[in-house]
């Protein structure tokens, strides 16, 4: 894989659900090492875009490139194996499996041995303050803990390059939110992981993200630093207008 700065490039992507244009000609470039925010009012197409990037949905038109290689049309597991992990708005952990077992699977799919995977999982669970719960079933965890587990589970990928997060801070306890923010910073600075984060929490996005992209009604309406987009009349209209 080459080291070009454009890690992710979304080119004129359209996603139709029947007659509904959920993503309308969206283009986006994310550079390596960035923490990019993806914001917009409800129903603006953020989650759809994430689902297109991670192979859950197929694009109707346009293309998605990762390190210059076209990835739209690939299966989610192939995309994951290339180093793109994701989280879901409602934490999708394997509820009948233990916290530790949840952690092991992404490492196994990347060829880590049981010992390596366990050691890495325990290290991450310790960081996330979940180590004491490692033998508990995920269904016994709180919503916030499940979100945290879902996030650190993605870090188990041995060659993680891009982490796409859908509302990682929604409805979680303040202390858990702090751990999530710390983990994002740690992986970004220490492991050069690029993040694309969908969030409604403007203060957190502002603190974390170098740049934000704003979607509204399926279209990209603005891009820039948080200060820049906050003063953009189109963005103000999208959030405050009708």
């Amino acid at each position: 894989m080459d080291d070009r700065s454009n890690l992710l490039e979304v080119k004129n992507v359209v996603k139709m659900f029947g007659g509904l244009r959920a993503n309308d000609n969206i283009s986006l470039q994310v550079e390596k090492g960035e923490i990019r925010g993806l914001i917009g009012p409800n129903g603006s197409g953020k989650t759809t875009l994430i689902n297109l990037i991670t192979g859950i949905y197929e694009v109707t038109e346009g293309s998605i490139h990762y390190y210059g290689r076209r990835i739209d049309g690939l299966q989610s597991n192939v995309i994951a194996s290339m180093g793109i992990m994701r989280t879901f708005q409602v934490a999708r952990v394997w509820r009948d499996m233990t916290v530790l077992e949840n952690m092991l699977i992404p490492a196994f799919t990347q060829g880590l041995s049981r010992r390596e995977a366990k050691s890495r999982a325990e290290e991450l669970l310790d960081f996330a303050l979940l180590i004491r719960l490692k033998d508990k079933q995920a269904k016994s965890l709180s919503g916030g803990q499940n979100m945290l587990l879902q996030i650190v589970r993605g870090f188990m990928h041995k060659d993680l390059k891009l982490y796409v997060m859908d509302e990682p801070f929604a409805g979680v306890h303040q202390s858990i939110k702090g751990i999530i923010i710390e983990s994002i910073k740690m992986m970004n600075q220490g492991k050069d992981v690029t993040f694309l984060i969908v969030s409604h929490e403007m203060s957190t996005v502002k603190a974390l993200c170098n740049k934000v992209t704003v979607l509204c009604k399926g279209e990209r309406i603005a891009e820039g630093t948080m200060e820049e987009v906050a003063n953009d009349p189109q963005v103000i209209d999208a959030y405050l207008g009708g």
Binding site: T54, Q75, N77, A80, F88, W94, D96, I105, T109
Partner: peptide, 13 residues
């Protein structure tokens, strides 16, 4: 069995 979408997103074929 638990969640095939999550499984696939975590790299399970």
């Amino acid at each position: 069995r638990d969640d095939p979408i999550a499984a696939r997103s975590m790299g399970v074929d």
